[in-house]
Amino acid sequence: MRQFLIIIFCLIGLLCSAQNVVAGFLPDFTLSYKASEQYKIVHKLESRFPSYNDTSEDINVQFERLDMQNFIERKIGLFSKLSLGYQYRIKDSAADEHRFIQQFSWTDNLTAFRIGHRLRSDQTYSRARKPEIRFRYRSGFQFPLQGQQLDAGEYYLSISDELVWSYRSPNADLENRVLAKLGLYINDKNKIEWGLEWRLEELFLEKVNHQLWVGLSWYKAL
């Protein structure tokens, strides 16, 4: 855990010294339950609270958006799943958005850790802007910190990297998202994670945008 905190503080220091940084709070809540042996329903609420740091003023954290996601997930094999989802996004200062999501995910269960892969495509529509399509791939590592397997009441480290390619006429964009989170596996039905997400946007352009989000997640299963 000590090493994890050191990494977080180093990252914060590094990013605070960089320019073009947006930082903020990114809480989310995921609720899932079985519909049958093969199917699962997943609901996710995610919100964004960016902070605008003007040197002449105090740090100002504001609500920006709320995403409501709903997925239906089908087990394909023992370690793979196919999901279809719909997201409704409420924005503070723009038109609401509709997003359709298709996802294939699979897990490698190794002796000491798990690797989760996620391939996702989505299409976003709104009245105010042209449609956007995205293709994403994320690989995530989950390391138990108190043994070889994750048991109730134990901490774990979750590290992931995601590449997001997007296209909204006439521009294409590439984004990279790195996540480092500390998790508490309360039990198989409750998990809490907190940590940092570092996003690098507009990698195709000369001036890359950095975003640093402090995340707090709760995964609840019924």
Partner: peptide
């Protein structure tokens, strides 16, 4: 408002410990 709602959701549904017996392995 949405933030308050999210916080409320997080605190109302307290995580409960599972009663099922599972294998424990600790370093």
């Amino acid at each position: 408002k949405p933030f308050s709602l999210l916080l409320l959701t997080l605190f109302i549904f307290h995580p409960t410990w599972s009663q099922t017996k599972i294998e424990i392995e600790k370093h």
